[in-house]
Lab assay of single mutants.
Amino acid sequence: MASDGVVVEIGKVTGSVGTTVEIPVYFRGVPSKGIANCDFVFRYDPNVLEIIGIDPGDIIVDPNPTKSFDTAIYPDRKIIVFLFAEDSGTGAYAITKDGVFAKIRATVKSSAPGYITFDEVGGFADNDLVEQKVSFIDGGVNVGNATPTKGATPTNTATPTK
């Protein structure tokens, strides 16, 4: 695992066909100046998982989280898009600690492993708008004895992609 920078880890949970599971997305290594904004994309298989919603985690402190935390689910493109932009203008609602960034709610549709993997990152910046190093650890849903650990090695991303 990367020793510096922010680590975004997609949790690994267990479920069975027809059940709804909650998959946490963790941030670790949050910089001392916090995270003022970030955007990134995960990939998944809508034939295996139906993403039914995404909720902000406990490290989102904006009293009205829909102003700073936004997501979009595109089953036709097989992606989930995340956007966080601190909304106070003063840094008061920045992410300042490690913990759960988001909770992905999904219904298991198939007995195949439900991988959720890193696809791309736009950027991560602290309260001074300084770009942060970030790496990703894939996860998803274990169905029966299947284990979604494909790509469990962190993917280092030093520069934003478009």
Rank of each mutant, 00 (worst) to 15 (best):
Y26Q: 05
V21H: 05
R105T: 10
A146C: 09
G11C: 13
I73R: 10
F42I: 02
T107F: 06
A85V: 14
Y26P: 09
T117K: 10
V13G: 13
I95Y: 03
V130L: 07
A2T: 08
D55P: 10
E131M: 02
N156E: 12
G34E: 04
E50L: 06
L49A: 13
I137V: 11
V7C: 09
V134L: 03
G91R: 08
V141K: 13
F118N: 10
D39T: 00
C38F: 01
I52W: 03
S68K: 04
G53T: 10
G99I: 09
A125Q: 00
K103G: 13
P24G: 06
G89H: 01
Y26D: 03
F136H: 12
G89V: 07
G122W: 00
I10H: 09
I116G: 03
G99L: 11
V7S: 10
E86F: 00
G15V: 08
V6D: 10
L49R: 03
I51P: 04
P75K: 03
N156Q: 13
P113C: 09
K109W: 06
D126V: 01
G99E: 12
I54D: 06
F136T: 03
F69Q: 02
G5Y: 10
D4M: 03
I59D: 10
A85T: 07
K33I: 15
A152T: 11
N145I: 14
T153R: 07
A158W: 13
G139T: 02
G99W: 09
T96N: 04
V13Q: 03
A85L: 13
T159V: 11
V141I: 14
P65H: 15
F101A: 07
D87V: 15
V100N: 06
I73F: 09
F27P: 08
I51G: 04
E22T: 08
G15W: 14
I116Y: 06
E9F: 02
V48H: 04
I54A: 03
Q132D: 01
A106M: 08
A152M: 03
D98V: 04
G91I: 06
T71G: 00
T161N: 13
T147N: 12
N37P: 00
A125I: 00
F118M: 15
G139M: 05
F136V: 04
A85W: 10
T96S: 10
G151A: 12
R77L: 02
A36S: 02
R105E: 05
Y74F: 02
G57H: 04
G140R: 13
V6A: 04
D70H: 02
N142R: 14
F42Y: 02
A102T: 10
V6I: 15
D70C: 14
G11N: 14
V6H: 08
D45A: 08
T20V: 09
K78D: 15
F118P: 04
D87W: 15
P31N: 05
K97Q: 08
G151T: 14
G139C: 09
T117Q: 04
G114N: 06
T90Q: 12
D119T: 09
N145G: 07
Y93Q: 14
G11Y: 04
S110D: 11
A72D: 00
V48N: 08
G140T: 14
N127H: 01
T20E: 07
V134E: 02
N142T: 13
V81S: 00
T20Q: 03
G11A: 08
T155P: 10
I60E: 15
V25F: 06
Q132W: 02
E22F: 13
V134D: 00
A94M: 08
I35R: 00
D70I: 15
G140P: 13
R43D: 05
D58M: 06
I95G: 02
G29H: 07
Y44S: 06
Y74P: 00
T14H: 10
T159L: 11
G139Q: 11
S110N: 05
I59C: 05
V48Q: 10
Y44L: 03
V21S: 06
S32K: 08
N37G: 15
G139S: 12
G18D: 08
D128H: 07
K133Q: 06
T90S: 06
A36P: 02
T20A: 10
S3D: 03
R43A: 09
P148R: 07
N47P: 08
F82P: 00
P154Q: 11
I51R: 11
T96Y: 10
I95C: 13
Q132V: 06
R77E: 03
A152F: 10
D39V: 00
R43F: 05
A125R: 00
A92P: 03
Y115K: 06
T90G: 15
S135W: 03
P65S: 14
D76C: 01
N127G: 03
E120M: 02
K109M: 07
D62Y: 15
I59H: 14
Y74C: 00
V13S: 12
A2V: 10
E131C: 01
D70S: 14
I51F: 08
G57R: 15
T20W: 07
G122R: 00
V143A: 12
P65V: 09
T157G: 12
I59E: 04
G34N: 06
F69E: 02
I10F: 03
T20S: 09
A146F: 05
K67W: 15
N37D: 02
T157P: 12
F69K: 01
P154Y: 13
K133R: 11
K133H: 12
I137A: 14
I35P: 01
T147Q: 08
G144F: 09
A94S: 05
V134R: 03
P75S: 07
V8F: 00
A106V: 13
V6C: 02
V121K: 13
N37L: 00
F118V: 03
T96D: 08
G151H: 07
A85F: 15
E131N: 07
E120I: 02
V61W: 15
G53V: 05
G114T: 09
I23P: 08
I59G: 12
E86M: 01
G89Q: 01
F118R: 04
K150E: 11
K33Q: 03
K109Y: 08
T14Q: 11
K12L: 05
N37K: 01
T90W: 14
I95Q: 08
T149E: 11
P154D: 14
S135V: 11
N145F: 15
T161S: 10
T66F: 11
A72V: 01
S111E: 10
D126W: 00
L49E: 02
E9S: 07
K97E: 10
P160D: 12
T14K: 12
T107M: 08
G89N: 01
V108G: 13
E50R: 07
D138V: 06
S68R: 14
I23L: 11
S3Q: 14
I52L: 07
V143G: 10
R28N: 10
P56K: 08
G34D: 15
P160C: 09
P75F: 03
Y93R: 15
R77H: 04
T71N: 03
N145D: 09
A152W: 04
